[in-house]
Design a protein around this nucleic acid. Structure first.
Lengths: 259, 259
DNA sequence: CGGGCCGTTGACCACATTCAACGCGTGTGG
DNA sequence: CCACACGCGTTGAATGTGGTCAACGGCCCG
């Protein structure tokens, strides 16, 4: 049995016309979509600037003139903003098939740093050339817009997680996102390697590194995850469903508090 | 004198090549950009479906088939997601000149509700028609992409605020954003009307309505804001700079705690 | 060996949430 | 007309989650 959430309904008097509600849909065809994106870029005839990166390398830096968009062929990447007062914030994590650099379009220069977290390959392509080719190749535009739309959806998911989940649930949700991303790309999800430090995870989730560590320990104690013998960045996920169950449980506990 | 933030540096060993750091740039020409957007849409010859809305009216609803993008001509709007488990989250606030509906591009249907907070006017235009016209009118594509890019920047700013600021500072930052948005649109910023309830503000900022109320009271006590005689949604802002000062002060206090 | 860096854990504390009571304006029905 | 309920906002007191500070262990590298 599920109770009303504690917060007052925000749009109470709006008559809800039918069951249009929906959650974030998990596209099972995502894997093909990503391969298709990469294939179409190869086939497009656009000059692709391929680049190998190592952990710590930047794809682009805040302030650099915007000319190129970047499509990730492999690896793991973080996008970081640095404010004028020195706050540093991880605002996104990115994987194979994702596009980077959209933040530069409006400003004319990049407004974030994009940093590789592991070895990987980046395909960079000239934005103007892409636009020019899009005129004769309308599918490219659709692909680009869909990528931007998906990115916005992910950022909204981050906001949702930050606003509605407890620290523990946020860490669990972070793992869920990571596993889901791997799954969509056809990578194994039973043994994963977080290529982020506890401090980076905490920064991304709006909490301290100690809280991340404690949350992971609790998750391990409850059997949701399992630390492999060597290294505390390697995590076994016996059952991906258990992560969702954990998140839902912590939500249910919150509402159970009101009897 | 400014101290290192409490959190460990996330990219410590990366040699920082020069002073490329930058904050979110405040475009002073924003007002013209917005008018220009609306003008170009009028001139484009695209069939614009103009619609008047009242507080509570939806521009679109989650689940509806995506066909149109919407440009706001006047008014105030919120974008809300509802999760499968019933959590409701305000993920964005929007003003004149903003575009709505990008979330529908990737999924083929909208994944959020867009709701008017006050009377306003929305211009809706067919997405496919826009794409078709963009082929002969390349400026339209640039305009569209810039709008999407700007929206992503704003979402990242929300994440930044949620992750790095205390509850009080978050409320102050919310006011700052609101005032900045009005300023960019040439509206008066010394007397503003929040057309959101405390519950909605709290939801958007990841805190409870009580905390919002307390934060606003504290801001008033410190003279940063001033409640007009009638109604607690009407706020006087004697000096917009004081809001920034308040946010910086609360950041400085946090780092001053470490001696 | 010593010194970083990373991760974990414990003790303490503060900030934000929870719960409750109250004031105010508004709309509604006796 | 007043009584009443209801939504919205404010404020106080108690509680608890997550932050702060500190100590410790493992690992890698000079």
């Amino acid at each position: 049995m599920r109770f009303e959430p504690a917060a007052t309904r925000l749009t109470p008097r709006l008559p809800n016309p039918g069951p249009l509600r929906c959650g974030p849909g998990v596209a099972t065809g995502m894997r093909w979509l990503i391969e298709d994106t990469l294939q179409r870029l190869r086939d497009s005839g656009l000059p692709l600037h391929r680049r190998l990166v190592h952990a710590g390398d930047t794809v682009y830096r805040c302030g650099e003139a915007f000319r190129e968009l970047h499509v990730l062929h492999s690896g793991f990447f973080k996008v970081v903003t640095v404010t004028a007062d020195g706050r540093e914030q991880v605002v996104g994590l990115h994987f194979k098939g994702d596009w980077l650099g959209f933040d530069g379009i409006a400003a004319g220069h990049y407004t974030c740093d994009a940093v590789a977290l592991d070895v990987g390959e980046v395909w960079s392509l000239d934005y103007e050339a892409l636009l020019a080719l899009s005129v004769s190749e309308p599918g490219l535009t659709g692909m680009l817009h869909a990528a931007m739309s998906r990115q916005m959806a992910r950022e909204r998911e981050s906001i949702l997680s930050l606003c509605t989940l407890s620290a523990d649930a946020r860490v669990a949700d972070f793992l869920r996102q990571w596993v889901e991303a791997l799954d969509k790309r056809g990578l194994r999800t039973d043994r994963i390697t977080l290529c982020l430090s506890r401090a980076e995870i905490g920064n991304f989730l709006g909490m301290t590194l100690e809280s991340v560590s404690r949350a992971l320990s609790r998750l391990a104690r409850e059997g949701v995850i399992d630390f492999a013998e060597k290294g505390r960045r390697h995590v076994r996920i016996p059952d991906p469903g258990a992560i969702n169950a954990y998140i839902e449980r912590s939500l249910a506990q919150a509402s159970a508090a009101l009897q």
